[in-house]
């Protein structure tokens, strides 16, 4: 006779025990992960170094956008001596 509920067949599946070696493998995996994990002090040191580098870059970018004082002083001296500061050699 045909079974009405197709899932009835699934009741014939027996429970099995997990293989005995599985726990040792899990322990080995855990150990391997722990070994590969970066120490907190290293991670902290790395991020601190990156932070300093970033701050230094920002500082340099901000400073380079300010007008150059040394060039201004040279220009004022050239003006006082009535020197030509342009690259044009011939006047029309």
């Amino acid at each position: 006779m045909k079974e009405t509920d197709p899932t009835n067949q699934l009741k014939r599946i027996k429970k099995v025990s997990a293989p005995p070696f599985l726990f040792t493998r899990i322990e080995a995996k855990i150990e391997a992960r722990e070994k590969n994990r970066l120490p907190i002090s290293w991670a902290f040191g790395g991020s601190l170094a990156l932070g300093i580098l970033l701050c230094l870059n920002i500082f340099l970018i901000i400073n380079s956008s300010e007008p150059n004082h040394q060039n201004n002083q040279i220009n004022s001296v050239a003006d006082a001596l009535e020197l030509n500061t342009s690259n044009q050699l011939y006047y029309e």
Partner: peptide, 24 residues
């Protein structure tokens, strides 16, 4: 819980080697 997990994986994957891997 190892038997529970292993049997669940077996029923889900229907392969012993796969079930062992996923149980881990």
């Amino acid at each position: 819980y190892s038997d529970l997990v292993f049997n669940l994986c077996l029923n889900y994957l229907q392969n012993e080697a796969d079930a062992e891997e996923v149980t881990q």
